[in-house]
Simulated scan of single mutants.
Amino acid sequence: MKYAAIASGSNGNCYYVAKGEDVVLVDIGINTKHVELRMAKLGLSPAGIKAIFITHEHGDHIRGLSVFCKRYQIPVYLTEGTYKGTKLRLPEHLVHIINADARTAVGDLTVIGIPKYHDAKEPCSFVITDGMTNVSILTDLGRGCDNVKHVIQHSDVLLLESNYDEEMLRTGRYSYYLKNRISSGWGHISNREALELLLENRSPRLRHLILGHLSGENNTVDIVEQTFAPHCEEIELSIALRTEETPLYEYVPAMQTISRFVYVEQQITLTQF
């Protein structure tokens, strides 16, 4: 499977996952021109995208959705709460309403919705699997609920939110309201919380950790790297940036990985919020 973060951060999010001709995007939170430019740098064509999955209605996850899906006539999958929250009027033939815990087939891929805590109307994260490899995209997490923990336990590739440094948020210029919103258990998780989730729940099958959705105001790449690098000696560690795309990565499971595979669809117990 191939995957990349086209954009990741509080100014915009967009994630690419593919197996062969089966290609999906998770969120389009930057404008269409920048999605096209960043994909082109990776040698990717928007015309090959088979489906777009939207996690929730906040602007940094849907900013480019309307123009992009209309231009390329790509089906959009999102919960009813998310669609209502977007206040967008998308072409009816492109809109597919799904449950927050839905399993959606896109060719050889299955996209699994993961309900989560976030201050949105009906949010979910997504795991994309081909039955051997699980690529998990977990951002905008108010807290590390049981769903999130279970996904981490079964991830081969994990893009995990590491949004803010607690001291920077505490002493920074954000208003009291915004600081509380971020750290309330309904906003985002800090570097410390992300590390605790990783250490308590990762399994030997995890081979690539990407930290994403870094705050531009309350975090730095250096802090995130210093926090996680001592704990990632046996896996690949990457940090997705706000300003540019990551490389296009490819994950090829080793035979030992396949033999210990536990299909997340068969294991996950979903908590209804």
Rank of each mutant, 00 (worst) to 15 (best):
R192D: 10
A194W: 07
I137Y: 09
E250S: 14
L158S: 09
K19G: 13
Y263S: 14
Y15D: 00
N180V: 07
Y117V: 03
A229D: 10
E265G: 13
R260T: 13
I52E: 01
F126V: 06
Q267S: 13
E234K: 15
I28R: 00
E200D: 15
G20L: 11
Y77Q: 02
E36I: 05
V262Y: 11
Y164C: 07
R202I: 10
D140Y: 06
T271R: 03
L37P: 00
H34S: 07
I54V: 15
K70A: 09
V135G: 06
H154R: 14
I152K: 11
N163D: 12
Y176S: 09
L209K: 07
D119E: 12
Q73P: 01
E244W: 10
N147I: 04
T104H: 05
C145I: 09
E21G: 14
H208I: 12
L214N: 03
H150T: 11
D108T: 13
L198P: 06
L78P: 02
N134P: 10
Y117M: 05
G43P: 05
M1F: 05
Q266Y: 13
Q226H: 06
S184E: 10
R205S: 12
Y263I: 05
L270R: 01
Y117I: 02
R173Y: 07
Y174G: 01
E36C: 03
T227E: 09
Q153I: 00
G216F: 02
M168F: 05
S184H: 13
L44I: 01
T129K: 01
E21C: 04
L195Q: 08
S259G: 00
T271G: 08
I30N: 08
N201L: 09
I235W: 09
L138P: 10
F228S: 13
E196A: 14
I239C: 12
Y83A: 11
K33G: 01
V35D: 01
S238H: 03
N191K: 06
